[in-house]
Amino acid sequence: MSRPLILGACLSAGFVAMALLSLVWTPHDHTLLDIPGKLQTPGGTHLLGTDHLGRDILSMVMVGTRTSIAVALVALVIGLCLGVPLGLAAAARKGSWLDETIMRGNDIIFAFPLLVMAILITAVFGPSAVNAIIAFGLFNIPVFARVTRGAALPLWEREFILAARVAGKHAQRISVEHILPNVMNLLIVQSTIQFALGIQVEAALSFVGLGVQPPTPSLGRMLADAQTLVTLAPHLAVVPGVAIILIVLGLNLLGDGLRDALDPRLRRRLA
C-alpha cells in the first residue's frame, strides 16, 4: 500500500462517512435561519461560521457533500451501465457496423463540451439536479465505452481469448467471463476519476444555476451564494471550495494509487 493510496482512501472515506452521517445528525439544522447571527466567522458555537442567512456552514457542507456525491454517483452509474456494455460489444465485433455506429455516436457526444450539453438540456427541460445528472451521465457513456473498448481490443487478440473461442464460447459469454474481469481494474480507476469529475461538474453547474436548485444545499450552490459576499466574508467561499478540493484530491489519489496497486506489471516488479 502506497502512501498516496492510503491518504486518498482516508479522504474519500471521510467525506462519504460525513455525507452519510448528515442523514441522521448534523451539528445544527441546516435549514434554520438566524438573521441576527449571520456571517459569523469560524469558531464558537458554529464551528465553521454562518452564512448570510445565519445558517450553520458545517451542517450545510455536510448535507451539500451528500447532494454532490449523490449527483456524481448516479451519473457515474449511468455511464457504467450503458458505456461498459457498449464498449464490450464494440470490441467483440471490431470493425462491424455495430462498432462503427457506437464509436461514431461516441464521437458526436464527445463533440459537445459537457457544459454545452448541460446548457442544451437545461434550455429545453429547465434547470434541475436531475437534468444535471442526465447531462453528466450522457457525458460518461462515451468515456466508459472508449475505455472499455480500448482495453478489450488487445485482449481479443490474446491467445487465451482465442483458446476460449476454440472452446466454442460465444462472444457474449467471453466478454463477461474473460474480458470484463480483465478490464475491471481499469474501470475501477476510471470510475474514481469520473466520480471526482462529477463532484466538480455538479459544483460548476450549480454555481451557474443549471444544477441543484434552492433550497437543496450543494457545494456548488454554496459557492454561488458566496460569490457576491466574498469580499465581506471570504470563509463562505473558502469552506465549500476546500471541501470540493479535498474530495476531488482524495478520489484522484485513490484512483492513482489503485492503478499502481492493481497493475500486474507493477506488482511483479515490486515482488
Binding site: Q200, A237, G241, I244, I245, N252
Partner: peptide, 22 residues
C-alpha cells in the same frame, strides 16, 4: 498537479479576485 487538478476553476477565479484584484 494533484492539487491543480482538484481545484475548481471558478473557485480559483474567486480566490484570484480576492487576492489580486481586491
Amino acid at each position: 498537479t494533484q492539487m491543480g487538478v482538484a481545484i475548481p476553476n471558478f473557485w480559483f477565479a474567486m480566490m484570484l479576485v480576492l487576492v489580486f484584484a481586491i
